[in-house]
Design a protein around this nucleic acid. Structure first.
Lengths: 193, 193
DNA sequence: TTATTTTATTGATTTAAATCAATAGTTTTT
DNA sequence: AAAAACTATTGATTTAAATCAATAAAATAA
């Protein structure tokens, strides 16, 4: 418990024992089983979740009832509906476990306290979000400049573990395409090479 | 000079005169004319630019030579190739002035110093990036769940000033579509309503 | 073990948008 | 004032991907 979290933390910001203990006292752990929801659309998002083990996904549901996956979060990643978390307005995203998972949770009050008490916590959070921001910029640029085929190849190359651990139709959803299209891309790729 | 920057800063984090003076001493101002580049692809991105007046855009160029606009930055927004800025590796994006503009620049060394010296600067940056991150999540979700037509309507509704100030083909590029498609969407919208 | 649900593939057809091309209106430059 | 460059529109055609539909394999539950 907390191992992945603090391993990740210390990769970015050095911590003394006391600092680690202080931060730990504001965190909690939650186990969540496959298919369980951490957050339902329209509820207020109460936590930022950091994945110790397992995998979660966030997604929206459109008017026609189709799901659109925004994010996967495996070990070492965080996931939340950040807008809902910060504003305490109803969430627009759902968050669900794709595998049995173990999470480190930060509540809003704990988050705010830690930002006040611990400059190192703020630095950690800033760096996490900066990384996530850079990743999203890359993703948008890839969406606008590459074919689905290229993007799929990049995805399986950059995220081999996610590729293995989630069903293809979820990767399709994440990429904004259909399962049929992914299937046909895979066929082309295997026959070609 | 610096008015928009500090107005924006103080909206998020209160500052004493001394704190403001300290931060100001690490910033610089730059005027840049329409069509001038702040950053060229493959150069290292040396600054984060905050727009006081005017408008900039960031874009990538694909193998076929087509541009893909990642971002517009008008008054009150920041723009950078964050990955290049942080890692000092060659930039993958270009940044160019769409209008004559006035910028507040933060160099990497100034940024690092300020992060060390001023917790309030870190808080400001964290909040800016968090906002930008949330905006990108929304954009990706919209890309994956809405038609181009819906997204165009949202764009002109959410960014009426950008709509007026940049040519349509740039909005097309930002949205990952073609000028022809935007023209046809506009035709449909005007005839319909 | 059987039944049910989930997942992936393949084919046929439709549809939305890209591409190609021509024209004309606007701005900007000379 | 004329020329050049930039911008937007419209039409015809092509193309990539969505949709619809059927089947089968694999995983999960009864």
């Amino acid at each position: 418990m907390y191992e992945v979290y603090f391993h990740n933390f210390k990769k970015r910001v050095a911590l003394t024992e006391e600092e680690e203990a202080l931060i730990k006292s504001y965190l909690s752990v939650k186990k969540i089983r496959k298919r369980q929801f951490l957050l339902q659309e329209d509820d207020v998002c109460k936590t930022i979740a950091f994945v110790e083990h397992g995998m979660l996904r966030s997604f929206s549901v459109d008017d026609a009832g189709s799901e659109h996956i925004l994010q996967f979060a495996a070990e070492g990643w965080f996931i939340s509906d950040m807008l809902s978390f910060l504003t305490e307005e109803p969430a627009t995203f759902n968050i669900e476990a794709v595998e049995n998972s173990e999470l480190v949770l930060i509540s809003k009050s704990a988050h705010e306290e830690l930002l006040k008490l611990s400059p190192k916590y703020e630095t950690f959070i800033r760096e996490l979000i900066t990384n996530a921001y850079i990743a999203l910029q890359k993703r948008i640029n890839a969406n606008n400049s590459q074919s689905i085929e290229e993007r799929y190849e990049d995805f399986i190359h950059n995220y081999p573990d996610i590729t293995k651990r989630v069903p293809q139709h979820m990767i399709a959803s994440y990429m904004g395409t259909t399962p049929e299209t992914i299937s046909r891309i895979r066929k082309r790729l295997t026959t070609r090479k």
